[in-house]
């Protein structure tokens, strides 16, 4: 009957009520959380981790996922790489007037499925509907809360020369999959977004491997930008080996055609970590055994630590090194 979202769905009245009751509460199963203006979570909690991200991906549906799945995995991963166990999410929807209700349902169900799979609960939500043209379809914000029990295990201050730098799999998959799905540049391929919740894999890693210094998920800005930020933040110099970085052929191909550098393409299901060299093999074995880490590799090591350190270098196939910087400006296809 109602086939599209209208402004009335966002006015706080009867249609908002129906949307919340019949779509959100049913999908997320948080009936018990709705009697107050906030969800009440039973404690006690030792330390907690909090993170927020808005998702504005275009197109909303893409090979390997959709904005809903992404909104769940993105925030879960930010919690997980912080050393926390993701517990709950909030979800804020901003919807364009006229957005197809079936698409909204698909997105919400996809969120619910991913949340269940990752073992987190969506406990609070919000829906705003804005005039046609005031937003491009659908944006979602998710905020996540995670639990840190016992002492926080990540100790970036213990990074030292010789520590291993690892990546959990191929880079650039998400970036290329979105680029293809957008159909603007004519790119065709079967690359799937790597969009996945890393929390279970990371949990295992944290439980079994000693000496994990720091973890990151290399999303916007890609592996290069993430590593540059780690180097600057924690005053270490890292050298990665260009040839060691796992990249799918089709991602290479797409970059060759359009003039992109895969080191700067977004990932949505990858883990970068710096780990004590002594634990490197154990970490690698563990990752390789996990379905999300089969192609995990050691890609480099920390070459210096201290006040004068803080750079990212890459070793080229011919054996020289060059410095990598964070993404400058934005990714633009290059022709001439």
């Amino acid at each position: 009957m109602v086939r599209r979202i209208s402004l009335a769905h966002g006015e706080g009245g009867e249609l908002t009520h129906q949307l919340i009751q019949h779509l959100f509460i049913q999908s997320f199963g948080h009936q018990d959380q709705t009697q107050f203006d906030s969800a009440i979570l039973q404690g006690p909690f030792e330390n907690i981790a909090v993170t927020t991200d808005s998702f504005v991906v275009n197109p909303i549906f893409f090979p390997g996922g959709d904005i809903g799945k992404l909104a769940v995995t993105g925030t879960i991963n930010d919690l997980a790489v912080s050393g926390a166990i993701p517990e709950v999410l909030t979800a804020g929807f901003i919807i364009e007037e006229g957005f197809p209700l079936p698409d909204l349902k698909k997105v919400v169900h996809s969120m619910a499925a991913e949340a269940e799979h990752a073992g987190v609960k969506v406990v609070a939500g919000d829906t705003k509907v804005v005039e046609k043209g005031s937003v491009d379809g659908l944006f979602i914000n998710t905020t996540g809360i995670g639990r840190i029990t016992g002492e926080h295990q990540l100790k970036p201050e213990t990074i030292r020369e010789g520590d291993a730098v690892m990546i959990s799999g191929t880079i650039g998959d998400h970036g290329v999959s979105i680029m293809s799905a957008r159909q603007e540049l004519g790119l065709l391929n079967e690359v799937q977004s790597d969009c996945a919740s890393l929390n279970h894999m990371i949990h295992k890693l944290m439980q079994e491997v000693k000496g994990i210094r720091i973890m990151r998920d290399p999303t916007r800005g890609g592996l290069a930008t993430t590593l540059v930020e780690l180097c600057e933040e924690f005053h270490c110099t890292v050298e990665v080996d260009e040839l060691a970085i796992p990249i799918r052929d089709a991602v290479h191909g797409a970059c060759d055609i359009l003039g992109f550098d895969p080191l700067y393409l977004a990932n949505e299901g990858k883990l970068v970590l710096i780990v004590d060299r002594a634990s490197q093999q154990q970490a690698l074995n563990l990752l390789n055994k996990h379905p999300l880490g089969t192609e995990a590799k050691v890609i480099g090591q920390v070459t210096a630590q201290g006040n004068t350190a803080g750079k990212l270098h890459v070793r080229t196939p011919i054996g020289t090194t060059r410095r990598l910087h964070r993404l400058s400006g934005m990714l633009l296809p290059r022709i001439c």
């Binding site: 209208s6 006229g98 046609k132």
Partner: peptide, 8 residues
């Protein structure tokens, strides 16, 4: 009309 508006 509201629905027509919603449809664009």
């Amino acid at each position: 009309l509201m629905k027509a508006k919603t449809e664009g």
